[in-house]
Amino acid sequence: MALSNPRLCFILLSLFPALVSGLEVTTTQVVALEKAAGQSVKLDCQFTLVPEDSGPLDIEWSLLAADSNDEDKVVILYSGDRVYEDYYQPMKGRVHFNTPDPKNGDASINLTGLKSSDSGTYQCKVKKAPGIGSKKMKLIVMVRPSKPRCSIQGTTEEGKNIVLRCTTAEGTKPMQYNWEKTTDNKLLPSTAVLDPVEGTINVRNVSTSASGTYRCVASNRVGSDDCVLNLLITPPRNTAGIIAGSIIAVLLILILLAIILFCFCRARNRKKYEKEICNEIREDVPPPKSRMSSERSYIGSQRSSLGSMTPSNMQDYTLKSQYNKIPTVEEYERPPSVAPLPPPTNVAPLPPPTSVRMAGPNLSRMGGIPVMTPAQNRDGSIV
């Protein structure tokens, strides 16, 4: 048993040159490559063959999965003297072999129009039975910084605290930000605190000497870009004057609103009053009574009554106290419902008329015209 072990080792050593000989990948490329998005990259894979490698040549490039549970993605393949380039749809039309005939010992590929999704670990595997060889390399596709945006946070007033900020929408980290002043003494304010990772400058108790033009440069390992900012620090404002002016402005606005509201209410009330007057139903006022016409009509009626009387009934008429005087204004205007006042007692009665009767011939001789007088009752009315 002890002799058999040295013999076995001798047999294995004799076979070792045959095991280590054959296909070999001789690429000396670095393990990791860093490229910017949009650029092109060449992934080297050089190999050598030996006479014992007599089988068909197969070359396979694949993108290894980050998770061991996922499958690797074949990017490009050479088999049976034919190239297959459409295995991986995201890289269709962007991946090619470096030479038209890879069997000459050059299995390198070129990637064009790099994208950030192209980052990963690639493996070149060459097979030619019985030989086999492989090589892994890492590709990092970095996105260069986009145009940064410079902004100011805070009040640009003397004595206040402000922050100058620089940000980019795109760019592969780690990102560096550098601020510089391009005017005057080209020195940042003495109270400024620069943060190159966040891209900010904190300035406390800023003074007017900080006014000027500032430039921010955003950069990473594949590129850089910049932006410019103009900073103007103003003197402190008169707070008391601003407050007083604001109060006066508010009072004027309130007075103006009060005047407008008063005019509106007044116009509305006037319009409402005119509308009520137009809709009101009025009663016609009776015309005033004429004293002279009433008295004249009364006197005329009395005269007509006296003219129609004969001497025979004059005596009865004289006995009626109501025919011996003209009614006063108060008696005339008294409503009919009020009883007439009694005749005055201090008026002397008229003397009785003489009962003189004249014959018809005498009246004719004197030029008179006999008139037939109708009979009257005791009250003086015509029968």
Rank of each mutant, 00 (worst) to 15 (best):
V163M: 07
V163T: 08
S151H: 09
P189D: 07
C124V: 04
K115S: 14
R149L: 15
T183E: 13
N69H: 05
R94G: 06
P130H: 12
L188R: 00
R144Q: 12
H96T: 15
C124R: 03
E85H: 10
L164N: 01
A169Q: 03
D72G: 03
D70K: 11
T191I: 01
D118C: 06
P130D: 13
D70M: 12
T168P: 06
M137W: 00
L139C: 06
S108Y: 02
S146A: 05
K147V: 13
P102L: 01
R144N: 11
T167C: 09
N98R: 10
D118L: 06
C150G: 08
D106F: 06
W179P: 08
N161G: 13
V75I: 15
C150L: 07
K160I: 01
V163K: 08
S190R: 12
S119L: 04
N185E: 14
K160M: 07
D195M: 03
D72R: 00
N69M: 08
G120M: 05
Q176E: 14
S108P: 00
T121S: 12
K92F: 15
G159L: 12
T167Y: 13
Y87Q: 14
A169M: 02
T172D: 04
M91S: 11
L139A: 03
G171M: 02
M142Q: 15
T99E: 04
C150F: 12
E85A: 10
T99M: 04
D72T: 00
D195K: 02
Y88G: 07
Y122S: 03
M137G: 00
K128G: 11
W179F: 10
V193R: 11
A107R: 00
D118M: 05
K92I: 13
S151L: 14
R149V: 14
S190W: 10
T182L: 14
C150D: 06
I140L: 15
Y177K: 01
L187K: 11
D72L: 03
C124F: 04
K147H: 11
T182G: 09
S134P: 01
M142A: 15
G80F: 11
K125E: 15
K103D: 12
K147I: 13
T172C: 03
V95F: 13
Q89C: 13
C150R: 05
W179V: 05
K103V: 06
K125H: 14
D118S: 10
W179Y: 09
V95R: 08
P100F: 02
P102F: 00
D86I: 04
D81A: 13
D118Q: 07
I76G: 01
L77N: 03
I162R: 03
N98W: 08
K127V: 05
G154T: 04
L188K: 00
R144I: 08
K127W: 06
G171A: 01
N161R: 12
S146T: 09
H96I: 13
E158D: 07
Y177D: 03
L77G: 01
P130C: 12
R82H: 10
S117W: 04
R149F: 10
I76L: 08
D184H: 11
I109M: 00
K135N: 12
N98V: 12
L139Y: 09
T112W: 07
A129P: 04
V83F: 11
V143F: 05
S146W: 00
G159C: 15
D72E: 08
M142W: 13
Y122R: 03
K181Y: 03
S146G: 05
L164W: 01
